[in-house]
Computed example of a mutant assay.
Amino acid sequence: MSLKNIYHLRRVADTSSKACLICYKPSTSVLITPDNKDFFYVCPAHLQDRHFCSPIINAEAEAARRKEEEMAKEIEQVKKEYEEKQKRKKERAAKDDKEKKDDKDKSKEDSKDKKDAESKDDEKDRDDKIDSIRKAGESKADASPRVFALHKNFYQMRIDRLRNIEMAKRNQDRMKNPALFPSVPNRGL
């Protein structure tokens, strides 16, 4: 039996939590092999322990995470630029309002209401876009590693456990086979 030393981190519901392999506290984190031959519950704190396991870092995932961080920075920069433009627009509007105040009070209020409505629509659209990007980022933003390799002692424990289970099954099958036991000796008559 070959068991690769690659374990993926999965989460289960709180109602399905079971005892951690190491400290026996209830845990919702499960390490499982890709072929589903072996799994065990472990606390998230133990995943940080360098003597228990080490993360296997995927270069593509790391590049994607960096790209997301850059995108978040760019979003913040665009947001700041937009706010600056809005401030300048308001300053210009205030300046224009002072100049045109004497000319047309009623027509100015109408145009101001239109400008305010347009700026509110622009702000709403911008906020919606930012929120959708943040939500997409939050779903992917779990920065903790998801693939681990156990250290040699813990890995050997898992192999030994699976080997013992397999041997116990073989022994049970042998015990059920009547040909395994010797037959009763016959007396020669």
Rank of each mutant, 00 (worst) to 15 (best):
M1T: 13
M1D: 09
S2H: 12
K4D: 14
K4N: 11
I6S: 06
I6T: 14
Y7H: 04
Y7T: 01
Y7I: 02
Y7N: 03
D14Y: 14
S16I: 07
S16H: 11
L21K: 13
Y24F: 12
P26N: 08
S27G: 07
T28P: 05
T28K: 15
S29W: 05
V30L: 14
L31D: 12
I32R: 15
T33L: 10
T33A: 12
N36H: 15
F39L: 10
Y41M: 04
V42I: 15
C43Q: 08
C43S: 13
C43A: 15
P44I: 11
H46C: 14
L47W: 14
D49L: 15
R50T: 15
R50F: 07
I56P: 08
I57W: 02
N58M: 04
A59F: 04
E60A: 02
E60G: 01
A63P: 00
A64M: 06
R66M: 07
E68V: 00
E69C: 02
E69F: 00
A72L: 05
A72S: 05
A72F: 08
E74W: 04
E74D: 13
E76V: 00
K80S: 08
E83M: 05
E83N: 06
E83K: 01
E84G: 03
K87N: 11
R88D: 02
K89W: 00
K90W: 04
K90Y: 03
K90S: 07
K90P: 00
K95W: 05
K98S: 01
K98T: 09
K100V: 00
K100T: 00
K100F: 11
D102L: 03
D103V: 03
K104G: 08
K106H: 07
K108H: 04
K108E: 10
K108L: 11
D110E: 09
K112W: 05
K114P: 00
K115Y: 06
A117Y: 12
S119Y: 02
E123Q: 13
E123Y: 05
K124G: 02
D127N: 12
D128S: 13
D131Y: 01
I133N: 02
K135F: 03
A136W: 06
E138L: 00
K140T: 01
A141P: 00
D142C: 01
A143W: 01
P145D: 12
V147Y: 00
F148A: 03
N153F: 02
N153W: 01
Y155T: 01
M157D: 06
R161C: 07
L162T: 05
L162M: 12
A168G: 13
K169T: 07
K169S: 09
Q172E: 14
D173L: 15
R174L: 12
R174W: 09
K176M: 12
P178G: 11
P178C: 10
A179H: 14
L180G: 04
P182W: 04
V184F: 03
V184I: 11
N186H: 05
N186S: 10
L189G: 09
